[in-house]
């Protein structure tokens, strides 16, 4: 297969072949992390701008390290240091960044569609690092990569995604990618956060986690974003944990080879108990390691094509 895209905006528009190609490329880059010198010259001379209009530590750090391992030059711009706070429009800010000859723009933005908006207007590669409640494609890819690595395949696996699906870009990217590769996806959570409308995407919706866990090959727990949670969606954190948290007791329902995943940062004792997060079924730290390999693959493919 021949990679043709300069941008990675979401998993919805990728084909199964394209997703598999990124995963295979990530296999090669994962190996680089085990070398004595963990750096290759693949993007030497390219400039990458990490443009994070919404706070993020782990995604930004992961992209930064991925770019460094590919020998690109990196500039980080965060909300507080950007002129957006002075009233400059997104487009003007981005055009200024391009005037500095940035080759790759990694964008985190609170508005869905912001990366698409820029990708259409800029010659640079645009990589979506999370846009509103729309998509977070590299998180979806690293989750899928981790499942494939641990289970050897994606096809026909039962994957449960639990939590705040309505506001989750991680859930959407996972849904689009997993379904394309043949997984059976079940979304679990209160009806306010997991409305039936999601069934149009080809998934099953459930409001009873105890019915879903015994069949699951993978449980992906999303963070309850209490800093954003509006009161009307569920009564309280305690009740959420009682009804949907992966407690030590509830984890006994899982098959012994079921993977427990979480995109982080985890709220211990809210969506997951410490014993489960640190238990043998947890692959949470493997997700972090794999995120680096997947982001190297995405930067190499989108940033490496001739434009």
């Amino acid at each position: 297969m021949n990679w043709k895209r300069k941008d990675l905006l979401g998993l919805r528009e990728l084909s199964a072949d394209e997703i598999n190609f990124i995963l295979e490329t990530a296999d090669a880059f994962k190996q680089v992390g085990t070398r004595e010198i963990k750096k290759v010259p693949a993007l030497r001379g390219k400039t990458l701008i990490n443009f994070f209009v919404e706070p993020s530590t782990r995604t930004r750090t992961s992209f930064e390290l991925a770019a460094q391992r590919l020998s690109a030059d990196i500039v980080n711009i965060s909300v507080s240091s950007s002129s957006l706070t002075k009233g400059e429009t997104l487009k003007d800010t981005a055009r200024n960044l391009e005037a500095l000859h940035a080759d790759i723009l990694v964008l985190r933005h609170s508005s869905a569609g912001a990366p698409q908006f820029l990708a259409k207007r800029l010659k640079s590669s645009v990589i979506n690092a999370g846009d509103g409640a729309h998509e977070h494609p590299t998180q979806g890819l690293l989750d899928i990569y981790t499942i494939r690595e641990k289970r050897g395949k994606i096809d026909n696996l039962n994957v449960a995604i639990v939590g705040d699906i309505l506001f989750s870009r991680v859930a959407r990217s996972n849904i689009f990618g997993l379904i394309k590769l043949g997984a059976k996806v079940t979304l679990v959570g209160p009806s306010t956060l997991v409305p039936r409308e999601f069934e149009k995407l080809g998934v099953t919706v459930s409001h009873k986690i105890d019915n879903v866990l015994p069949e699951a090959d993978v449980v992906n727990l999303l963070r309850i974003q209490h800093e954003r949670q509006r009161k009307e969606y569920f009564p309280g954190i305690g009740e959420y944990t009682t009804l949907f948290g992966l407690t030590k007791e509830r984890a006994k329902l899982l098959k012994p080879d079921c993977l427990v995943m979480h995109p982080g940062p985890i709220n211990r004792g809210v969506e997951i108990d410490s014993e489960v997060a640190d238990g043998i079924q947890s692959v949470i730290l493997a997700q972090v390691t794999n995120g680096l390999a997947v982001r190297m693959a995405v930067l190499y493919l989108c940033g490496g094509i001739s434009t």
Binding site: W3, T25, L43, G303
Partner: peptide, 14 residues
Amino acid sequence: VGTRAELPMVHASK
């Protein structure tokens, strides 16, 4: 990289 029409496929070294 970036000057060839087709990006070379990367493989894991071993």
